[in-house]
Computed example of a mutant assay.
Amino acid sequence: MKLALKHQFNGFTLDLSLEAGTGVTALFGHSGAGKSTVINAVAGLLHPDSGYLEVDGQVLMDTKSGLHVPAHKRRFGTVFQDARLFPHLDVSQNLDFGTRYAPKGTKVNRDEVIDLLGLASLLSRAPNTLSGGEKQRVALGRALLSGPRMLLMDEPLASLDSARKQEILPYLEHLRDGPLGLPILYVSHALEEITRLADTLALIKGGKIAAQGSLTEVMGDPAVVPLLGVREAGAVIEATVLSHANDGLSQLAISGGTLDLPGVKASVGTRVRLRILAQDIMLSRTRPTDLSALNILPVTVQDIRMGDGPGAAVSLLAGEDRLLARVTRRAVSALNLTKGAEIFAVLKATTVAPSSIGR
């Protein structure tokens, strides 16, 4: 997807360009940043002052030439914050409604979608008997059965509580990694969701792209800490599950060593994704001993960014993985941290929550 947008609202200007490939491209920003406006423009629900949209080599919008393919002809499946199911139809009938809009020759296997989203036991249920997470799975199934070329997901989990979010996130991970191979444009202001799902991340602030790139590159960049907030900033790395111990801890291999963490439900050999918050990493010049923290990794300082206050963000390289640590300016001085310094990163096992471990 190639996208360029410019649109003037009362007191707000959206002006950005974005390129997205396969997988999940996530737009993150705080309320009012312009995320949903981007989704509406891509879906064809907004006619921007200036814009260009190309998907799969087909131009769907070009304001210079006056081209604006209507929303119903763009072949996008859209899932909103509220499921918008038809209350007078059961789950099976709601799913079938999506198939009415599938283009001729589109091969979307209904049974595969039902299996992918775990809907078999819900088919005869009425929407008002479903949980929030179940409703969103049905809405997603209906969108898939319309035979879209791309999925647009606008804050699809925002109305769900934490338990329901954890219920539906594995299904979204299966969709991302599954055989359908649909590109997904995913909008959210919840980093917990984005770090579990995204391949590419674009940070939006005040209607403009503040940073974009692969998820691991953007999340590991100390320059984005002010954009994310000091409590949300942290790196995302991949690991392989090595073993599960009887005490509830699992050992995972990363490129820079091993980590022992609780709450890992994946089987041995599975690749998982970990979000490690910057505020949870401590730094030491020498390898510490006699600590309760189990995870000590040799790392190399890649970059140091001083904040406006007493804090500093330190980018670290652990093997081939980028980590991010948030410490004080005083600690940077006391440890004499400089680019290229070889030090140790310390991480308590319990600081990585199960919700921060994804497929």
Rank of each mutant, 00 (worst) to 15 (best):
L27Q: 10
L277W: 01
F86I: 06
R322V: 13
S121K: 14
E193S: 12
K2F: 14
F344W: 11
P103Y: 06
L316W: 01
H88T: 14
L16Q: 01
L151N: 06
L116Q: 13
K265H: 08
V108N: 02
K104Y: 06
I204D: 02
P70Y: 11
K6S: 15
L14W: 06
A4R: 15
L317V: 06
A253I: 09
T200P: 00
S31T: 11
S159A: 15
A235F: 03
F12D: 02
G256A: 07
T25C: 14
L249K: 08
S31F: 10
P262G: 03
L67A: 05
L116A: 11
M150F: 13
S50T: 15
I114P: 10
V91L: 14
G77D: 03
T13R: 09
M306D: 14
D82L: 09
E238N: 11
G229T: 12
A313V: 07
P183H: 06
A245C: 01
R100N: 11
L283M: 02
G319D: 03
G178K: 08
L201Y: 08
E54K: 12
Q166G: 14
G263F: 02
G21F: 12
L116E: 13
D15F: 02
L252F: 10
A245R: 07
P298L: 03
G248H: 05
I237C: 01
H30C: 11
A41E: 07
L5C: 09
S255N: 06
L215F: 02
D303I: 00
R305H: 13
G248P: 00
A4L: 07
R287A: 04
V91H: 08
A126K: 15
A139E: 11
Y186G: 00
K104L: 09
R305D: 09
R100D: 11
N128S: 13
I237R: 00
H244C: 02
P179R: 15
G319E: 04
L242R: 13
L53E: 08
G248N: 09
G132D: 12
T78Q: 12
E134I: 08
D161V: 05
D15H: 03
H7E: 07
T129A: 15
L175Q: 10
A83F: 03
L46V: 11
V113W: 05
M219Y: 05
L249P: 02
P127N: 07
A334S: 13
S356I: 01
Q251G: 09
V236R: 04
G34M: 06
P354R: 13
S292E: 01
F86R: 01
G133N: 06
S188F: 10
D96A: 15
V218R: 04
I184W: 04
R285S: 14
S284M: 04
V38I: 07
